[in-house]
């Protein structure tokens, strides 16, 4: 039986009738057409499907879309503001932190959640934070460089730039 849900994605509310079996990632990609969020393993291991749900990095393959009713979701499409790339996006480009790019949206979303809470991380902390995101091009060194580089830029622009999504307690 379909359920009426309204999920706010990148600032826009989308009321839809959906089946309970629909995963959040399927809702984003297939119902809304937001294909920037990738499906890698579909077993909550690879992190390619990571999006922010109420400000927390979440594997969208391991959440039902009905569970996101009323939630605020930010996908990779929502990181740039008015054509301005988010610091994490600029840092990934600058540091060559991607090859094939499949894991990139998930890694950037995880990094945003992490850096909003830990603005000056050590490399060890960065590596611990991205344990749930697999890169099969073996580009972790440059990914860590990019997250460190983004953290510096985010600290400098902290006052000027609004948080992507504040953590909401529900």
């Amino acid at each position: 039986m379909p359920h009426a849900v309204a999920v706010t994605v990148n600032g826009t509310s989308y009321p839809r009738e959906i089946e309970p079996t629909l995963l959040l990632v399927e809702y984003l990609r297939e119902t809304l057409g937001l294909t920037g969020t990738h499906v890698g393993c579909d077993t909550s291991q690879c992190g390619a499907c990571t999006v922010l749900v109420d400000g927390r990095a979440t594997k969208a393959c391991t959440m039902l879309a009905v569970q996101a009713d009323g939630a605020e979701v930010i996908t990779i499409e929502g990181l740039a503001k008015n054509g301005d790339m988010h610091p994490i996006q600029r840092a990934f480009a600058k540091e060559h932190a991607l090859q094939c790019g499949f894991c990139t949206p998930g890694l950037m979303i995880t990094a945003v959640d992490f850096l909003e809470r830990n603005p000056s991380p050590s490399d060890a902390e960065i590596r611990h934070a991205i344990k749930g995101n697999l890169c099969r091009c073996t580009g972790y060194h440059n990914i860590v460089n990019a997250i460190r580089s983004a953290s510096a830029e985010m600290r400098q622009s902290a006052g000027a730039r609004p948080k992507v999504a504040a953590e909401v307690k529900r």
Partner: peptide, 9 residues
């Protein structure tokens, strides 16, 4: 537990 995303949910 698990990883950052798993701990969030």
């Amino acid at each position: 537990v698990g990883d950052l995303q798993v701990r969030a949910r």
